[in-house]
Simulated assay, not measured.
Amino acid sequence: MRVTAEELTIHEHPNADALELAQVGLYRAVVAKGSYRTGDLAVYIPEQAVLPMELVAELGLTGKLAGSAANRVKAIRLRGELSQGIVCRPTALAGVDLAKARADGSDFAAELGIVKWVPPVPVSMSGDVEPAPELLPWIDIENLKRYPAAFTDGEPVAVTEKVHGTACCVTYHAEGGRIQVTSKGLGAQRLALVEDPKNLYWRAVRGHDVARVAAALAGELGASRIGVYGEVYGAGVQDLGYGADSRRGEPGYAVFDVAVEAGGHLRWLDPEELTGMLDGRLPLVPTLYRGPYEARAVMELAEGRETLSGRAAHIREGVVVRPLRDRYSAELGGRAVAKVVGAAYLTRRGGTEYE
């Protein structure tokens, strides 16, 4: 999570005379009318940021933010319009040249005392850990609304459904046939979970025979390491269950990515290659669209009902966009992959966001 200087585009609020919409990338945040003009620079604080109470008070937001301490930024609807993040000019940055900071990509999170919100992890998702420096890397997927130039119009892409579960990475080592299992949060710390039959991630990995499939992939692709990235889901994991119940049986599981290391080179399976190699072997996240990229169509796909269960059990979390040929993105500073989270999902009540 980064707190950055951004150029604003101001739009009229359709339902409030005293409010306007400040656009950053494709995000929009509600602001007081007249506070900014199009072309102005301001600081953008994203969702899931936790603010120090002094800054909360300075911004006039006492008692208005999310969380038990009312200090967490969350998407909300204000007079019918979705507001994501906070646009402001904190006094602590009064002497900062925001134009230069924007050009340099400066991050003000530490200076402002802002940290990312990390929810407490349920016991079933935690466990004993061990150092694991040889894990295959975890790719943090950025939001397309923050990086709207990540894809070009007409570029061939695949759009898959973003499943609201907890991400699980399996690293398979061809030498010795060893596997390591980790979560998103632990993987970022280069930690693996010690095998435990009660642990949610290990239950999913063993229940869906992920290690056997990873071993087969390694043999077919001549790989020294295989990384299988999947979403573990079901009632008891997050607030959206997709008709599965992890508390009474095998957790739901759906793969969204595979990394292959061969000859010292790491690559990611392209969407069609992923489907071709795993279909019938492991469950996959649903593909909603393949074709030319068009931003508005992708935003529309982020809304609606989920398709994973086949029963449209509840709202969709959102979507993930990838090019049909994996590539580098200068806009993202890494692999070209981005997500869009649905407005209905962001503003639902009683949501959970365990990592």
Results as ranks from 00 to 15, higher is better:
T62H: 04
K64Q: 15
V73K: 02
L55I: 10
R72G: 06
K64C: 02
N71E: 15
G85Y: 02
S83I: 01
M53S: 11
G63H: 11
E81I: 01
P52L: 10
E54R: 13
L59S: 03
L55F: 05
A57L: 15
R77I: 03
A70N: 13
G67E: 04
P46E: 01
S68T: 14
K64F: 05
T62W: 02
L59M: 12
G67N: 08
A66Q: 06
E81M: 08
L55C: 10
G80W: 14
N71I: 07
L55S: 04
K74Y: 05
L82R: 14
Q48M: 12
G60K: 12
A66W: 12
L82A: 12
P52N: 11
L55M: 09
A57K: 15
A66M: 10
V50C: 07
E58F: 15
L59Y: 11
Q48Y: 13
L51V: 07
V56G: 00
Q84T: 05
S68F: 11
L59I: 13
L51Q: 08
G60Y: 08
Q84P: 01
Q84A: 09
L65A: 12
T62E: 14
A75F: 01
I45S: 03
G63A: 10
A75P: 08
A49H: 00
Q84L: 06
A66H: 12
Q84R: 11
A70G: 05
V73A: 03
E47K: 10
A69D: 14
G67Y: 02
E81Y: 03
A75T: 06
I45R: 03
L78T: 12
G60E: 11
R79N: 12
K64R: 15
E54Q: 10
S83R: 00
R79P: 04
L59N: 07
R79S: 13
L51C: 09
L51G: 04
Q48R: 10
T62P: 00
G63W: 08
I45V: 15
V50S: 04
T62K: 11
E58T: 15
P52Y: 10
V56W: 00
L65G: 03
E58I: 14
A49D: 00
A49P: 00
T62C: 08
L65Q: 05
I86M: 07
Q84N: 10
G67V: 02
S68V: 14
P52I: 08
S68G: 15
L59T: 10
L61Y: 03
V73M: 07
